[in-house]
């Protein structure tokens, strides 16, 4: 049974979702930040966390973007295989939703990495499609600030590097990022797959709400171990020293080749703009 969904409906929902993400930080994140305030040993670190909480509350109350960098819109669409989009051009609708939602926001997208002309409306978004069973459409968005994006890294490790090599690479990435990534950060780790997919795994790890673990016990244990190692760096809120450098480490893994142990680390800043809706 095919379910028809109009592109206009998708466009309206996506516009609202992008706006919500810009103006309101997720509840699970705010809760984690409040818990971090209790855990942070540095006085300045606690003051900075308080500022971040106050900033989030004021942004929501006044409907202002929590951070001036509302990033590139990264859109994840899981489309049920029984869905048929009707009533217009799907890609044009996605662009239009971004254009509309970013009207009051900063335009940070340029047309070409060398020419560097601002597109003027924050289009195009980055879009990831997945076909899944069923007749629903799950739309998830990240408004990804590039302070943290710029400090993200990828390595094609050899299998001999093993778990130790993975840990070293993750900790090293957070250490090099320091204050640049606006800590307390959220660390998305991708493991496995190929060169192109390991980065996407790391980004998908950032979609997961805080307070959740990887369902695989060995990966959940790795998440916990990495979180402790990262927080032992002492970088702290905004890099001025402290016990809370990261709020969470999320690991997503996929099958890979006998020759490889790909690892990618995608950092998210202390303003993780994220939202989702089911159609």
């Amino acid at each position: 049974m095919v379910r028809e969904i109009s592109v206009a409906h998708l466009q309206r929902k996506l516009t609202a979702l992008l706006s919500e993400a810009a103006y309101r930080l997720p509840d699970d994140y705010l809760k984690a930040l409040q818990e971090a305030h209790r855990r942070e040993a540095a006085v300045l670190g606690r003051d900075i966390i308080t500022l971040l909480l106050d900033n989030a509350a004021l942004a929501e109350a006044e409907r202002l973007p929590t951070c001036q960098d509302t990033g590139m819109a990264i859109i994840f669409l899981e489309v049920g295989q029984d869905v048929h989009f009707v009533g217009g051009d799907l890609h044009a609708a996605l662009n239009e939703a971004v254009r509309e939602a970013y009207r009051p926001l900063r335009k940070s997208v340029i047309d070409d990495p060398i020419r560097r002309q601002n597109t003027g409306d924050n289009t195009p978004p980055i879009v990831h499609w997945e076909i899944v069973p069923g007749h629903h459409v799950r739309v998830r968005v990240l408004l990804k600030g590039f302070g943290a994006e710029m400090m993200s890294r990828l390595a094609m490790l050899p299998p001999a590097a093993g778990l130790e090599g993975v840990k070293r690479f993750v900790v090293e990435t957070v250490e090099q990022a320091g204050p640049n990534a606006c800590p307390p950060v959220i660390v998305g780790v991708g493991l496995g797959g190929s060169f192109d997919t390991v980065g996407l795994l790391a980004k998908k790890a950032l979609l997961r709400p805080l307070g959740t673990s990887n369902p695989e016990p060995h990966l959940a244990a790795l998440e916990q171990e990495l979180l402790e190692a990262v927080n032992a760096l002492g970088i702290g809120p905004q890099g001025f020293g402290g016990t809370v450098t990261a709020l969470a480490v999320h690991v997503e893994a996929a099958p890979t080749h006998i020759a490889a142990l790909p690892v990618a680390v995608n950092l998210n800043c202390s303003a993780p703009r994220r939202a989702e809706v089911l159609l």
Binding site: I48, L51, D54, N55, A59, E62, P65, T66, P179, G239
Partner: peptide, 12 residues
């Protein structure tokens, strides 16, 4: 000098 990143609304 460093201003607090992520406190954009308060800084404005």
């Amino acid at each position: 000098l460093a201003a607090v990143g992520g406190a954009a609304v308060l800084l404005a």
